[in-house]
Structure formats: C-alpha cells, structure tokens
Amino acid sequence: MRQIFAGTDGLTQSTTIYCPGCTHGITHRLVGEVLEELGVTGRTVGVASVGCSVLAYEYFNCDMQEAAHGRAPAVATGIRRVLPEAVVFTYQGDGDLASIGMGETIHAAARGERITVIFINNANYGMTGGQLAPTTLLGQVTTTTPGGRSAATAGYPIRVCELLATLDGPAYVARTSTHNVAELHRTKKAIRAAFQAQLEGAGFSMVEILSTCPTNWGMDPVRAMEFVAKEMTATYPLGEFVNWRRGN
C-alpha cells in the first residue's frame, strides 16, 4: 500500500478548534511542515497570541509561550536574546499584530529582531465575533461597522507588509494567500524563506497570509475563498516586499 499522507513532526496530534472552512488549520500545517523540513523542531520556541489561534500552543509540536494580546513580538524578543541558538516564531492575527500590537510589530522589525512572524490576515476579529480589524476592507460589514467600514469614521485598511518594507530591519517580508492550491504552495515557500532568513541571521521576517473567516463573514467556505481571491487581494496585493537574497 502506498502512503500518500502523513502527519508532520511540526504539529501535535491535537484536533484544532477552528471553524469549518477556516484556513488557520492549513497554515498551521504549512508552518509545521517547514519546521520539520528545516530540521529545527527540536530547537524551536513558538509564541502564541490572543485571537482564534490562542490555543496554538496545543498544536505546534515545540516549546511554546502564550503572550498577552499584541505582545508576541516582545515576548519573542526576550526568548530570542536569551536563546541565541533557538528558532523563534510568533503566530498572530490581524487585530493582535496590527492593532493592539502594532508598536511591538514595528519595533521588532526595526530592530531586525531575528524572529519569524506568521501573520494571519482575515480582515476581522474572529474569536470575539467579527468586529472591525485594522485590516477590514472598506465597505466590509462587521459587528462594529454594521453599515460597512466607512473611511470617514473607521479609517482605512492598514497594509502591514508595505509599512514594514520601509524599514531597514526586515530581511524577508511577503504577502501570500490561502485561496487555492497554487497559493498554498507559494505560502509554504514564503514561510520557508522567512525561517531561512532567521536561520541565516539575516534579520526580522514576516509572512502575511490572507485567510478566510467564513463564520464571521457569513459566507460558505467556497464563497469565502472567492472573497479572499477577489476582494482581499485587491486591497492587499500578493508578493514579496523584502527579500534579503535579492538585496532589497
């Protein structure tokens, strides 16, 4: 019998709590596979954040610390400086990273802190029931923008990759998506490059991953994928913004 699928050493055997159609699980898997393929699962410390992925410490098969809301890059900095040989990553959502934790994000990037940030952008606060996030699209309906996000009262979406690309500290910054298999392959490649940047001591690395939230968006999973593909990528163009290998 030919084995066509197996678990990865990067993840535990725990069952995730994510909603049907949510892409958190897929992204966990991609991160786990990269950790395994890079052979670093025995020397990795991850930092879980606050949001839907708050239980990420149950899923990644490595030492984990749970951070306060928004503070994962600061916690990761503490770990990084104490354990120079470890591989350190954070796993954060858009509210955590780009709202309450924007200061920590920008400064960890500016310091060129040798950590890897996995940034899930699903354009709303998932765990608390679908509120306005800094990444919510203009016109997008959330529980706190019931008439759709209006720039006049709720401002504009924040493009984190573009923001961080203005700094000298990041070694690798890319935005990818999860809406089809080809994009998943690109996402995994980007995650691998991000960890590689860390392993080579090149600096701060981050992959922003456009993700679905069918439950809070009020869509079925297929429609949610289409929303990512059409609507989200229009506001958040995919691509590499910083790549130390290309010298930018």
Partner: peptide
C-alpha cells in the same frame, strides 16, 4: 513582555 519571554 520581553521579561516574560526571557524569564520563560
């Protein structure tokens, strides 16, 4: 929070 990470 850096202290948290380092102490941890």
């Amino acid at each position: 929070n850096m202290v948290y990470g380092a102490a941890g």
